[in-house]
């Protein structure tokens, strides 16, 4: 039986606009952006959890909230049962050794003035503190570089000497330096060519098998999530609208948004009968979300109740959840 590594319970992360002096003088009210709005989900140890949705749906904010790189407004994040939100700075330090990030911008997250060796050594030095010994760390760096199929000579080069795919692998090697249990990967193949992306995906799967890493896989690429993730959640305007095992979600597509999202993904195999559902309009502003169901302004199945009541996330059976009035039985 798989152990639950991370349990997110009723997490809310709000951003406040108009807190500044100018807004006070000019009398503008406080605006609240509901970036993550009451999200609960569980990630099992050793699995990959895919988080999908369009830009601005809050998927990256949710990921950052787990690390408290963005302070959550409310809710709990349990890591091995300990609440990350309540941790003090010392506990947080230990937690962050165990949980790492891979960022979307493969060059932006590497300091251009440090050699690759220094970049990867930094977390190791911090771990060892005063006991750090140069030779040991150099050995470890070489090991980490070969773990991501880079030449150990890469340690003396600077990030700009590498291609996009290689820079991404340097980011991966830094993330695995402290042998974390958990890694959040935010769009880990964005900006990479097809065959380079395949190399990175293969590498990350190998590392998962070898080191029993749990991934939170944030992406808008549904083909990739289908291929990588065991479980997944679909987010829309800060809320989870559907969640379950990846194959169930892709098979049943219970929520109209999931259906539209999956149908919009371009597929190479055109022989499969596929009808794209075109959604009208765009995502509403998270400052002024619509009443009732947030998706109703674009939903092809909208009816009266959707305007008045917000649909709760209900269990469709088999740990498959969906928030839509079409599935409520009363």
């Amino acid at each position: 039986m798989a152990v639950d590594l991370i349990q997110i319970q009723n997490l809310k992360t709000y951003f406040f606009q108009g807190k500044g002096v100018l807004s006070k003088w000019f009398g503008q009210g406080l605006k609240v952006v509901h970036a993550v709005d009451d999200v609960s989900l569980t990630i099992k140890k050793g699995s990959t959890f895919g988080l999908v949705g369009e830009s601005g749906c809050g998927k990256s904010t949710l990921g950052l909230s787990v690390f408290r790189l963005v302070e959550p407004t409310e809710g709990k994040i349990l890591f091995h049962g300990n609440d990350v939100v309540k941790m003090n700075s010392a506990e947080l330090r230990t937690f962050r050794q165990n949980a790492q990030l891979i960022f979307q911008d493969q060059f932006g997250c590497l300091n251009p003035r440090m050699t690759v060796g220094q970049i990867i050594a930094e977390p190791l030095m911090l771990r060892d503190g005063k006991q750090a010994r140069q030779e040991d760390i150099a050995d470890e760096v070489a090991e980490l570089l070969s773990a991501v199929n880079l030449d150990p000579d890469a340690a003396v080069k600077f990030p700009n000497e590498f291609s996009g795919g290689q820079a991404r692998r340097i980011g991966v090697s830094r993330a695995i330096a402290l042998k974390p249990e958990f890694i959040m990967a935010d769009e880990p193949t964005s900006g990479l060519d097809i065959s380079t992306a395949a190399t990175v995906l293969n590498l990350m799967q190998d590392l998962q098998d070898q080191m029993d890493i749990t991934y939170l896989w944030v992406s808008h690429n549904l083909n990739q999530v289908k291929y990588m993730a065991d479980d997944m959640a679909v987010m829309y305007l800060g809320k989870v609208v559907e969640m379950g095992q990846t194959k169930e979600v892709f098979h049943q597509r219970a929520h109209p948004y999931t259906r539209a999202l999956i149908s919009a993904v371009p597929q190479v195999d055109t022989d499969q009968q596929k009808e794209t559902i075109f959604l009208e309009g765009e995502i509403p502003s998270p400052i002024n979300p619509p009443s009732g169901c947030y998706f109703r302004t674009r939903c092809p199945h909208v009816f009266e109740r959707c305007k008045q009541e917000e649909p709760p996330l209900t269990d469709l059976g088999g740990d498959h959840f969906c928030a839509c009035h079409l599935h409520s039985h009363h």
Binding site: A198, L201, K226, Y227, V268
Partner: peptide
Amino acid sequence: LESLPSRQKK
């Protein structure tokens, strides 16, 4: 075509 995740089984 072979390196696309959409064509490959999990």
